[in-house]
Nucleic acid binder design. Structure first.
Length: 156
DNA sequence: GCCAACGTTGGC
DNA sequence: GCCAACGTTGGC
């Protein structure tokens, strides 16, 4: 049996919120614009069916707001070749694309967002990448223990 | 290969 | 809007 992997992906709700995902065609979107090598490398290891915590950064409050699911493996991010795009990368070439993305699909919105502040206070989540000081990674791994605990929190 | 300068992230 | 933390770039 293939073990499923868990991730957390950040988005600024003013740019793309979980509501935007819920109302997108097919309830899915391509996760373009990642321009960090570590985040990209994590996306390259993603498999179809991997589960995702959807996180609102630069939000009030910053919080985990729901769930999504990975529906494609990594493929080249088209915005890197688009001169007009904010994420255009002149150093990247179609024959050797530097940046990848995956598609994700909406699963659910939590009845109540799990605020960063509360997560910090939870001893079970001490080791979470999200809570590490200075952590800015926009795509990060989540352990199955953290995943289970967060789903429990989301139910209460 | 070092490191200063710069740009970005993201909580507050 | 501030600024700490971090990543990247480029001169040397």
């Amino acid at each position: 049996m293939v073990s499923r992997n868990y991730w957390l992906m950040k988005s600024e709700p003013s740019t793309f919120s979980i509501d935007d995902l819920a109302h997108a065609p097919g309830k899915r979107t391509c996760w373009d614009g990642v321009r960090n090598y570590q985040a990209r490398n994590y996306m390259r290891t993603m498999a179809i069916g991997d589960q995702v915590l959807f996180y609102h950064s630069n939000a009030d409050p910053p919080a985990i707001v729901g769930l999504a699911e990975v529906v494609t493996t990594a493929y080249p991010d088209s915005t890197q070749f688009d001169k007009k795009d904010k994420h255009y990368d002149p150093a990247s070439t179609p024959s050797e694309p530097r940046w990848d993305m995956v598609d994700i699909k909406y699963v659910k919105t939590f009845p109540k967002p799990l605020a960063l502040d509360d997560l910090r206070r939870d001893p079970h989540l001490k080791g979470m990448v999200l809570l590490k000081k200075g952590s800015r990674l926009s795509v990060q791994p989540v352990t199955s223990d953290e995943w289970k605990h967060i789903l429990r929190l989301a139910k209460d």
